[in-house]
Design a binder for these strands. Structure first.
Lengths: 230, 230
DNA sequence: AAGCATTTTTGGTACGACCAAATAATGATC
DNA sequence: GATCATTATTTGGTCGTACCAAAAATGCTT
C-alpha cells in the first residue's frame, strides 16, 4: 500500500478488464458501490475513476455511469490527445507533427505501391472517384480527401495505422478546418491524389513517394499561407 | 460553467503555463491556495491538479508540491503508456507495434541515406564503434544497440522522433529484456548495423531500407523464438 | 399500452477534520 | 558562527457527511 490508495483500485479494475470480467461496453460500478467494495472513502473511489478515465480504460461522461472501453490503439491516442493539443500551440509544434505525417504517409504509399492487393486497389479507386466527384462540394471534398488517405492507412492491415490517421485528422483539424476551400484547390488536390494512385498502379514506390511528398508539401504551404509561420 | 468546475481551473493554469507565467520547474500553488484563489472547494482544486497531472503538464509526487512540466512529445507518449501496456497484452499487440517500428525505421534510414549530414555520419560511426566494442558485454551491447538506433531517430531533427524511440524501447522492453543475450547474436546484430551504416554511407536508400528490414525481421524472429506466437 | 409524474440513483460539489510525510523554523551544541 | 537535532508548520492523502441537479428507473393515470 505504497502511495495512493486509488492505485490499488485502478490495478484491480484493470486486471478485471484484462480477464474479461469487465467487457467492452459494461458499466463500471457506481462510486458508492466502489467505496463499499474496496472499503475506501468516496474521495478515493472518485480518484480511481478519474485515473482510469485519464488512462482511457473507461469513458466517463458527467452524470453518467462510466463505461468500460477495451484498450485499442485509438484509446492510446485519445489519452495523449490533451497533451498533444498543448504541444501544438508551441512554436513549431504543428510543423513537427505534420512532418511525421509526411514521413509516415511516404512510407505507406511505398508499401501500397509494393504490395497493395486487388481489394486495396479497388478501395483506392473508389475513394479517388468519390473525391473527384466532390470537387465542387467543399465539405464533401474534405470528407473524401480524408477517406482517400484513410485507405492508405488501411492497406498494411495493422490496426495501429487507422488509429494514427484518426489522431492526425483530429489533432490537425483546427488548422485544416479553418483553411479556405476553393474548387481550384480541390482540383489541385485531386490531381495529386490521382498522381499518387497512378504511381501505385505502376508499382513504382519512388514515384508514389515523390507524388505524396509533393502533395503534402503543397498542403503545408497552404497552411503557412493561412496561418503564417507556426 | 458547463460540466466540471475543475476544467476551468485547468484551463486557467494551462493558459498560465503557455504564457510563461508558470515556467518549467516552477511549483504549482498548494491545493489550499488554489481553493482560495478560484473560490472552490478543495475537492475541485484537487481534481484540477489530478487532471493537470494526467495531462502531463505537472508532475505530482505524493506529499510534494506539484512541479510544472512543460509539455513535450515525450509527455504525450507517457500519457499513452498505460493503455499501450494493456494493448500489448492482447493477441497480436506486440507484433502490431513492432510492425510500426519497422515501417518507421525503414523510413528513417531512407531519410538518413538521402540527407544525413556530416554530424549525423559522425554520430552514427561513433555509435556503431561503441556497439562493436561491446560485443562481449551483453548489457553494454544492449545499451549501444539502442543508442545506434537512437541516432537514426535524431537525424531528422524533429523532437517527435526521439520521443517515439524512447516510447518503443520502453514499451517493448518487457520482451527485449527477457531475451537471451549471446555474443553470437551480438555479432549478427552488429553486422546488421554495419550493413545499414554502409548503405547510408553509399547514399543508397533502397539498400539501407533492405538492411534495416532484414535486421528488424531477424530481431522479431528472435522474439518469436523466445515467446512463441504473440 | 402509452404518456406523464414521482421517486431513486448517480455524479458534482462543498465543508470540516485528521493523519503522516516533508519542509521550514527554531534552538541547542560545539 | 556554523552545524546538527528538535520542534512547528506546511502540504498532500484520506475520511465522513451533506446537499444539489441531472439522469434513470419506477409507478400511476388515462
Amino acid at each position: 500500500m505504497t502511495g495512493r490508495a486509488a492505485d490499488s483500485i485502478v490495478h484491480t479494475i484493470t486486471a478485471r478488464i484484462h480477464s474479461g470480467a469487465l467487457a467492452h461496453g459494461d458499466l463500471l460500478p457506481a462510486e458508492r458501490d466502489l467505496m463499499a467494495e474496496f472499503e475506501v472513502s468516496r474521495t478515493v473511489a472518485r480518484e480511481a475513476v478519474r485515473i482510469l478515465s485519464s488512462q482511457g480504460l473507461i469513458k466517463a461522461k458527467p452524470r453518467h455511469r462510466p463505461v468500460i472501453r477495451k484498450a485499442g490503439f485509438g484509446a492510446a491516442f485519445d489519452a495523449a490527445g490533451s497533451i498533444v493539443d498543448n504541444l501544438l500551440q508551441q512554436p513549431g509544434g504543428v510543423h513537427n507533427l505534420f512532418d511525421t505525417r509526411i514521413m509516415l504517409e511516404a512510407a505507406l504509399v511505398r508499401e501500397a505501391a509494393l504490395s497493395a492487393g486487388k481489394k486495396d486497389i479497388v478501395n483506392l479507386k473508389t475513394a479517388l472517384a468519390a473525391n473527384g466527384a466532390a470537387i465542387d462540394d467543399n465539405d464533401q471534398f474534405y470528407q473524401t480527401d480524408q477517406q482517400f488517405h484513410a485507405v492508405l492507412y488501411d492497406i498494411p492491415g495493422n490496426p495501429a495505422y487507422p488509429a494514427i490517421h484518426r489522431a492526425y485528422t483530429t489533432w490537425l483539424a483546427p488548422q485544416w478546418g479553418q483553411m479556405p476551400r476553393l474548387a481550384d484547390r480541390n482540383r489541385i488536390n485531386f490531381a495529386s491524389h490521382t498522381a499518387i494512385m497512378d504511381a501505385i498502379l505502376l508499382r513504382d514506390p519512388d514515384a508514389a513517394e515523390a507524388a505524396l511528398r509533393s502533395h503534402l508539401a503543397d498542403a503545408w504551404d497552404q497552411v503557412r499561407l493561412t496561418f503564417g509561420d507556426i
